[in-house]
């Protein structure tokens, strides 16, 4: 009797619940499978690399230069070379990237030109790294006569990761509440004082997290180095940014392309060194994020 007056029927809705619960479980299973699949792939990859390379990891491997004889070959020039390159990449890309982000967020008028620049920067982040290699070859190697030096490679890599740093920094700067800016301006602070004392400290965690992830990419990239002609066989260390050098991915790439199997194991050992460096950098990024986000 009462049911007849209702436009919806509760007992029918209740009957449908098991079907809905089944769907609920189904999707959970689907997502679980996706996660397991990714994880297994990663484990297989790591297992392969470690089974091949772990035996070749030794103090000598880290201490020796490249050699034609696999048992004497080491990765010293590549590790030191990568550090030299990053000594160029970190300051150049941070200054240009954060500077651009601050200009776009704090100073630029929101008009069509700004939006066009903004769109271009976002698109640049998706441009293949080979293209940045060609750009570096044209400008730094050919026009500025920097050759296959640390500086040429460092500047090319800076260009490559610049869009990522700009976008990450912009997001971090944009996330600073407008109330904080108002508080600063309200006390008579200039724009620069507000940026330096209020915006940047609040945005720092986001800027550094994004930047360190971008730096990891610069360490791992191979294609631009190949294009600008960075040698793989180097038996000396650079003494200045104008000296030729080699980098970890170049060394690994060179070893994998050799016919002797011994060198493939060396490549695996090199990959382990590279992975350790990347994991260390990402841990720093996580640490910075946790440390600075707790403050607010």
């Amino acid at each position: 009797m009462e049911n007849a007056q209702k436009s919806i029927r509760t007992d029918e809705m209740i009957k449908k619940i098991p079907v809905r619960l089944l769907k609920n479980k189904l999707y959970k299973g689907l997502f679980f499978f996706a996660a397991v699949f990714t994880f297994v792939l990663l484990v297989v990859l790591l297992a392969r690399i470690f089974s091949q390379g772990a035996a070749h990891l030794s103090w000598d491997f880290l201490q020796n230069f490249a050699s034609r004889r696999p048992e004497q070959a080491g990765i010293k020039a590549a590790v030191i070379g990568t550090l030299w390159m990053m000594a160029v990449v970190v300051p150049v890309s941070l200054l240009l990237g954060v500077g651009t982000a601050i200009y776009l967020e704090e100073y630029a008028k929101q008009n069509r030109i700004t939006r066009l620049i903004q769109m271009n920067i976002s698109n640049l982040a998706g441009v293949p790294s080979v293209v940045f290699g060609l750009l570096g070859l044209t400008i730094f190697v050919r026009v500025l006569f920097l050759g296959n030096s640390v500086l040429a490679a460092g500047l090319t890599m800076s260009l490559l990761i610049l869009p990522v740093i700009i976008v990450a920094s912009q997001e971090a700067v944009r996330a600073v509440p407008k109330e904080l800016r108002e508080a600063s301006y309200g006390l008579g602070a200039t724009k620069w004082q507000t940026i330096l004392r209020v915006v940047l400290p609040s945005a720092l965690a986001g800027i550094l997290t994004g930047s360190i992830l971008a730096f990891s990419r610069a360490i791992g990239e191979t294609a631009p180095l190949v294009v600008i002609g960075i040698p793989a066989f180097v038996a000396f260390l650079p003494k200045s940014v104008f000296d030729p050098f080699t980098a970890l991915p170049m060394q690994i790439y060179n070893w994998t392309s050799r016919p002797q199997e011994e060198f493939h194991f060396l490549a695996a050992a090199g990959i382990i060194v590279l992975l350790v460096i990347l994991i260390l950098m990402n841990s720093v990024a996580v640490w910075i994020r946790n440390r600075y986000e707790k403050k607010y």
């Binding site: 309200g186 006390l187 008579g188 609040s202 607010y296």
Partner: peptide, 20 residues
């Protein structure tokens, strides 16, 4: 200059906005 004006004239906002 607005900086002078805002130094002589303080402002308290709707939502408390202390710095972090």
């Amino acid at each position: 200059h607005v900086e002078e004006l805002r130094t002589r004239v303080g402002m308290v906002f709707q939502k408390p906005n202390p710095f972090p």
